[in-house]
């Protein structure tokens, strides 16, 4: 997944700006650089947000982004390494979905889980291919907007009224403080 400066991630608890990862070149140890590591993280991304309709390549893209974040600084590296180790030892990718969910529950409070989940929920649903699969068409300005017969093409319900109800003005105008003060509060909260 391409990381650009303007990309932002909102994860539970924090707003993280993706930063340029230029300093990575000097890093001595890269985490999750072994063959199979990206696949392992991808299997976690899929277990977190399981969509049968998504090809594994989408989860692989998301995993690549998570791994970059896992290498962003020393703190991220040590927690990411420990988390990935756990997945490997427990052969997470070979578990059935139910077991995977149970395992993820057990690590829910770790920074590793927080990083991968927080990244996945944003990167996955922001993925262009996911938008296609969902039928989301996105920008339409260059085509002159969504056309009549397109933004209103729903036919399984009757055409609704778009004007205000003739009684609305009277309903809203009938709001004198005195009259409404006479309604007594029944405390239920």
């Amino acid at each position: 997944m391409k990381i650009t400066r303007r990309e932002l991630l909102i994860s539970a608890g924090s707003l993280l700006a993706y930063s340029q990862l230029g300093s990575l070149a000097n890093a001595e140890v890269n985490i999750a650089a072994q063959p199979g590591d990206q696949e392992m993280i991808a299997s976690m991304c899929k277990a977190l947000y399981p969509h049968d309709r998504f090809p594994m390549s989408i989860y692989m893209d998301v995993a690549a982004g998570a791994i970059k974040k896992g290498n962003a600084d020393t703190g991220a590296k040590i927690s990411f390494r420990a988390g990935l180790d756990g997945l490997k030892i427990n052969k997470f990718d070979k578990m059935n979905f139910k077991k995977q969910t149970k395992y993820l529950k057990s690590i829910e409070n770790t920074p590793f889980f927080g990083l991968v989940r927080g990244h996945t929920v944003v990167a996955l649903y922001d993925h262009k291919e996911v938008h296609k699969i969902f039928g989301y068409q996105g920008a339409s300005f260059d085509k002159g907007g969504y056309k009549d017969g397109e933004y209103n093409d729903l036919t399984w319900l009757p055409e609704p009224r778009i004007e205000e109800h003739p009684d609305l003005t009277a309903f809203l105008d009938d709001s004198s403080p005195k009259k409404y003060a006479s309604l007594k509060i029944k405390k239920t909260f």
């Binding site: 933004y151 319900l157 609704p160 009224r161 778009i162 009684d167």
Partner: peptide, 21 residues
Amino acid sequence: ANNNYKVFAEGAKRNGYKFYA
């Protein structure tokens, strides 16, 4: 009306609501 409004307005109507637009 767009599609989202069609669902909203008809659902409101079937709940006896009047003041939708």
